[in-house]
Design a protein around this nucleic acid. Structure first.
Lengths: 159, 159
DNA sequence: GGACCAACTGTTATGTTATATCCTATCGAT
DNA sequence: ATCGATAGGATATAACATAACAGTTGGTCC
């Protein structure tokens, strides 16, 4: 098994994997999106992971679950589906993927990435969003997608 | 030549490549940093590019300049040097590298990335930084490095 | 029903980005 | 002169991502 972006050692479990799954399921049902068996598998893998996963970590896990080799495009396509609909976000600075809490609110969250335990927390801050929008506007820029990632130590690891 | 993150087609020239070079030179002199011939070459390549460059675009250019193949670690090591000292920033969402304006001010800038022309502008916003710091602190998080990237259309391309 | 189209998945191959490892050269300090 | 520290060369490989094409399924239209 290759050494791909793993869920880091001490990463704490997601607040509520089951809830996230349920939210995605209902959102898909509501919007007529196809939550196929394959996508459901990936959903489960992401939900049950203790932290953000690299695409190849997902590929490895899925291969185990399926009992046969799964090729990269299979997983990347599932990820694309989740990304497109805002169910998952990509952590650009790590090439990793994680469940997006705050499904409703057009996920503009900022990411807090612990460099010790690998944990990834999402925070919402309306003021922050407004400020970003405004700063962009002043520069004549029309933003479309935003990424805010803070790398450092989480509360637990700072101690 | 491989198809690596190029300087995008219409990317406008950097405000002042020469000034940036001079700033880096003087900063290195001041802090006793070794600005070796190799690093100087990479500096020049970055300064003269019309936009952010991928590592392999730098490798290609450097290979041309040197008249012989340059291996990836050579360039990655030079980039690491510049990144460590805040002379260059990495655009995580593009895997590209660009000169860092605002050398003095512990570059906390936000990046405005035009998805049409490829241009990358850096904006400083003290309020934004404060807000981020504060939001992190509220979450018990001690940030260390921050990345703020907005992808969208720049003024010129919006028209 | 049969023709068709769109969405999804499988498969193979390849492209792109980044690092590990080991070795050599240079230079200043002991 | 030796030694350690820093820089760079060379080889190999790891890690991340997409292109291109083929097969399958499920719906729609006639």
């Amino acid at each position: 098994m290759s050494k791909t972006t793993p869920p880091m050692k001490n990463a704490r479990a997601k607040p509520n994997p089951a809830r996230w799954r349920a939210q995605v399921e209902s959102a898909c049902a509501g919007e007529g999106l196809h939550l196929t068996p394959l996508r459901r598998q990936v959903l489960t893998i992401l939900a049950e992971s203790s932290g953000p996963l690299g695409a190849y970590a997902i590929i490895d896990q899925l291969s185990r679950l399926e009992g046969k080799a799964v090729a990269p495009p299979t997983v990347y396509r599932a990820l694309e589906f989740f990304l497109d609909h805002g169910f998952v976000y990509k952590i650009e600075s790590r090439n990793a993927y994680a469940p997006c809490e705050h499904l409703g609110h057009a996920h503009h969250g900022a990411l807090l990435l612990c460099e010790k335990c690998g944990r990834s927390d999402e925070i919402e801050d309306v003021k922050l969003d407004r400020l970003l929008q405004e700063a962009a506007r002043r520069a004549g820029f029309a933003p479309h997608r935003q990424m805010v990632e803070l790398v450092g130590l989480c509360r637990d690891c700072a101690a």
